[in-house]
């Protein structure tokens, strides 16, 4: 008699997507942030195409990282506040599937739109067209890893909502993703073989999918009695 709460992956994916699509405002903030900061770069640094395309790979990735970080905090905080996290913890099944469901919903709502929006910024930074596909591939894989690792930080800092602490916890863990992500775009821009860093990103994603839910379920149980 496993009730709906332990329905697992599909149930939580469906529910979180429904909730995210219901309040559209919440959805667009990280995307607006992504575009807005991209506009600031040429104003702050230099409009010349040569200068911009030199820093474009790293910059696109830093913007994607910050946009994900901005939105990851609300992954568990609403459930923690209204008590549905308590009901989730009581469900007999392992926490892994519901957690993966919620993170996939978060990725579909934040990560995927970022990836689809990134060509706009690539054009703003006069990135060569050949680098467009590798950039979107690296962002698609990378934002998933960012959501997974960010969810670990969100679960551990649940009792006290402070953006800075979450960033401090999660930033060091984001470094490898940032390195391989921007290296993929840089390799594509230089015409080198960009599959190698992309493969590393996929490996990081595989490791994150397996290990992060363990840390997150432990973090959620700890937060409940924090």
């Amino acid at each position: 008699m496993a009730n709906n709460l332990s329905g697992g992956f599909k149930a939580y994916l469906h529910r979180d997507l429904l909730i995210a699509l219901r309040d559209r405002g919440d959805l667009s903030k990280p995307l607006m942030f992504f575009l807005l900061v991209a506009v600031m770069v040429p104003l702050a640094i230099a409009p010349e195409a040569s200068k911009l395309s030199a820093i474009a790979p790293g910059l696109i990735w830093i913007l994607a990282l910050l946009a994900t970080l901005l939105s990851i905090e609300r992954l568990f905080s609403e459930d923690y506040a209204d008590g549905s996290l308590e009901q989730l913890l009581i469900s007999p099944n392992l926490l892994m599937m519901p957690i993966l469901g919620k993170i996939t919903a978060h990725w579909l709502v934040i990560g995927l739109p970022l990836t689809l929006l990134s060509p706009v910024i690539a054009i703003w930074f006069s990135l060569p067209i050949s680098a467009m596909v590798p950039m979107m591939l690296s962002l698609a894989l990378g934002t998933a890893v960012l959501s997974l690792i960010g969810a670990v930080g969100a679960a551990l800092t649940l009792p006290r909502q402070g953006g800075v602490l979450l960033a401090l916890l999660v930033m060091p863990l984001y470094m490898p993703v940032l390195i391989f992500g921007s290296a993929t775009i840089q390799a594509a821009v230089d015409g080198l073989n960009w599959l190698a860093p992309l493969a590393m990103l996929a490996a990081l994603l595989a490791v994150a999918i397996v290990l992060c839910p363990l840390a997150i379920s432990a973090g959620l149980r700890i937060a409940k009695n924090g």
Binding site: A2, G7, L18, I19, R22, E78, D82, G83, Q87
Partner: peptide
């Protein structure tokens, strides 16, 4: 086990009927 604590566990973005369906057995 059915547990009802101080918090009602009701999601604000869902309707009453959806919430009850979510919290009841499949």
């Amino acid at each position: 086990v059915l547990f009802i604590g101080h918090q009602s566990g009701v999601k604000a973005a869902l309707t009453v009927e959806e919430n009850l369906r979510w919290m009841s057995p499949n």
